[in-house]
Design a protein around this nucleic acid. Structure first.
Ligand SMILES: [Zn+2]
Ligand SMILES: [Zn+2]
Ligand SMILES: [Zn+2]
Ligand SMILES: [Zn+2]
Lengths: 162, 162
DNA sequence: CGATAGAATGATATAACATAACAGTCAACG
DNA sequence: CGTTGACTGTTATGTTATATCATTCTATCG
């Protein structure tokens, strides 16, 4: 993999996400504890999604933590819609969209640099819902994830030499 | 189309799938070994997707096998497009569609009875591809999975009492 | 037929991801 | 204060997947 040109992970993005989290927790009377903040900060600072064990390793550099502690923080952040789980990676990534859209986004996961792009899916989801209603299925949660090559990586090696 | 009467583990469905596998392997000069046949038969006979360890347990009733052996059979069957992996379940299910369609199907996974329904997604995928091209992403593989209540289960307990 | 090369499987170990169970800590509130 | 509920610590275990190397099978060729 080539991680030279990482996007995100900037101080700007981290600060934005952290202050958003603070506001949200104040408003909803949730507790934005040091552990939760720390986990969210690590995710916001990473150019690619991190697994729970990745996070445990990073937090451990400062303070001993067991994986289960990280999983609890992740659960909180997922419930608060501050992060998403990337199922095909067993990993977690901060949410890119400030007030979160209603429809489940589509995640584009780059096999080359590992970055994840989150794109809204209102229209597709609407179209799909017709077909799904036809077969009588009542959806509760969705996973739309696509693996491939992101624009930046495609540009750098155009022929996509596997 | 009517998807209600899906693979419920009937001998009919199993036989169909197994003979399809045999034909396909003969045509492509692949080896449809006893282990691969056995794993496919177990999947075809199950009303819901099975994990590799589920499969190992079932095969073990007749003959001792290690999980890795099952994983190898699954890999073969996945490559041959005879089965699919249901990512949100870490489980495997036979493919319902005889000559497999080109687009990645959408899988509807029932949280109540565990069954999986495979539906084509040509239009959905087509719509998505426009947006994805806009951001310069080159897709290689896709996961579209929706969790919810299937028609049969919705019928049995209409109010969907959680 | 017997040698042999490649594919498949066996066997063991370990990695990677996730949860259970219970004890201790801390903050809020009356 | 003392109680209560939320959070975290600690240990153990469950679940899913892969690495590595030895052995067996199968097709092919001399
Ligand atoms: Zn989001
Ligand atoms: Zn990339
Ligand atoms: Zn299929
Ligand atoms: Zn059902």
């Amino acid at each position: 993999m080539n991680f030279e040109r990482r996007n995100t992970g900037s101080k700007r993005a981290s600060a934005t996400l952290l202050s958003r989290a603070e506001r949200l927790c104040r408003d909803k009377n949730l507790r934005f504890t040091p552990m939760r903040r720390r986990v969210l900060a690590e995710l916001a600072a990473s150019p690619e999604p991190l697994t729970a064990y990745d996070l445990a390793d990073r937090v451990r550099e400062e303070k001993r933590v067991a994986p289960v502690t990280v999983y609890r923080a992740l659960e909180f952040l997922l419930d608060a819609k501050l992060i998403h789980r990337i199922v095909i990676r067993n990993a977690y990534t901060p949410c890119d969209h400030a007030p979160h859209h209603d429809a489940t986004p589509v995640f584009l996961v780059c096999t080359h640099c590992g970055t994840v792009e989150e794109i809204p899916s209102e229209t597709f989801q609407h179209d799909l819902s017709g077909t799904i209603a036809e077969v009588g299925f009542r959806p509760k949660s969705r996973v739309f994830e696509i693996e491939g090559e992101c624009a930046r990586c495609a540009k750098r090696q155009p022929a996509s030499a596997i």
